[in-house]
Simulated scan of single mutants.
Amino acid sequence: MPASDNDTIEEINIKLQRPTAGEVRKFATGEAVFLAPLPVPTGDTPMDLDGSFIEINESFLDIGSSNFNKAFQTQAMIGLVMAFIITCVVIGPLIIGLTAFGDPYGRSFTDNFLEFFFPGLEFAMWGALGFSAMGIYVILSSTFNKTRSRPIRFHRQRREVCFFPNGSDDPVIQPWEELVAWLSVSTESTGESIISTYTFGMAFDDPKSDKVHFVNQGVATPLHGLGKWEAIRVYMEKGPEFCPGQAPYEGRHTFDKERQDMHEEYQHNERSALGVGWWYLTHLITWWRFPYWVAEWDHRFSMKSLPESIAEWSNPLPSEQWVKPSSALNEQSAKIERAFAQGQDFMTYFKANLSKTEAKESADSSAL
């Protein structure tokens, strides 16, 4: 989850006035619903779809960047290059060649094919170089950016959170129940449709520098953002056995497992012969095991380690020293859990629904 350099509207509002869980604040392009302070249950399924749980034990949880989806990122880059080459060298010349049928000048399929093939080959080479350079930059920069930032550490026994701003060795220690977290939606119109962008964010107060540090992460849907926060919350409130496990690292063993699963699906009639052929074709085009080798390479570059100054803070505490939840949190959690039992969800309980906001704005735009 990268730190944000530019303040968004909801971040500026946080600086001016601290929110409460369930509060909704509107801004120019959308709205934000706050999940904390006072981190009450959301009722959603805890999930870690982006592989950000990089260390988890009885004392603390580290949220950061693993090599999860690195193989897919590499496959996407290679697939883009290969699709461009195939279009220029094979599909394009074939289409031009087929125009030979009924050609008034009597040119053959071969004549038309070769007339386009060599210019297409040259164009493919230059285009492939450009796309490859772009892909290599994305792959390398995402890996090296990971090594320059530190994970966020949630200590459940202390009920505190440790955050290190980029470039700093001074920790920002935030009480868990005072941490600000939110889920926001921002919409913009393309003239023909409405595009919605969802963001899960957290804010860390730094009293030493009188600053607020923001961490933002784009999520696909509100459910993904709520599930991510619920995974963190349930770890802090209930323990590691109630939340997703540590993110597994990807490598060539991942490829072998995927191929084995594909064969088992075929044997149990869960995948067709056409599906098997497509699996082999797509992996051949994206260079077979190479993307998984890149993922193994990325795995060797971990996030920047936490300094020794935080080692003592990270140690487990005797059970009698564990910090207890506040009475305010217990009371509010009990109320919302009773509402869940009656069929409500987090959004309806707090009268906030980002999906409905998106639908309303889309309808208003259509009416215009």
Rank of each mutant, 00 (worst) to 15 (best):
Q217N: 09
H155R: 06
I54F: 12
Q174K: 10
G135E: 02
A339Q: 07
K304V: 02
T254L: 01
D111M: 13
S189C: 05
I78M: 10
F131N: 03
A133G: 12
D44M: 05
L35N: 06
K208H: 12
D48E: 04
G343I: 01
P39W: 06
N353L: 01
V89R: 08
E296D: 09
G64K: 04
F350E: 04
P37M: 09
L140T: 06
P119H: 15
L317V: 02
L140V: 08
G167W: 01
Y349I: 05
P248Y: 06
Y249I: 13
R153P: 00
I12W: 10
L16E: 14
P318Q: 07
I285H: 02
L140F: 07
Q342Y: 09
E192C: 05
N67M: 01
E250N: 04
G251H: 02
R271Y: 01
D103I: 09
F144V: 08
A247H: 00
F53P: 13
S327K: 13
P37C: 11
E55Y: 01
K228H: 06
I173K: 08
W279F: 15
I232L: 09
G97H: 13
G227H: 00
R18G: 15
G79Y: 11
L368F: 10
G239D: 11
M236D: 04
N166P: 02
A76W: 03
W288I: 05
V215R: 11
E358L: 03
G30D: 07
P248K: 13
L98C: 09
A181W: 12
F144T: 04
V24Y: 01
H155A: 06
M262Y: 04
R233Y: 07
D170H: 07
R158N: 05
W229P: 07
N57C: 00
L98V: 13
N67P: 06
E265F: 03
S142H: 09
S66V: 06
F131T: 10
V234W: 00
G218A: 12
L16M: 12
I96E: 15
T221M: 08
Y349V: 13
T45C: 06
G102S: 10
S65A: 10
F123A: 13
L306D: 03
E58Q: 14
W288H: 03
P240F: 00
P244W: 00
L226A: 00
E361K: 14
E188H: 15
F255C: 02
K304D: 00
P325M: 01
I194D: 08
S141E: 04
I195K: 13
S196E: 11
T110G: 14
G127Y: 09
W279M: 08
M47R: 03
F255N: 05
L38P: 07
I85T: 12
E358V: 11
P39S: 08
A273D: 02
W279R: 02
M347E: 10
N112H: 15
W229C: 00
R107P: 08
A76M: 15
L306S: 08
D48A: 03
G22K: 04
S66Q: 04
A295T: 05
T110M: 10
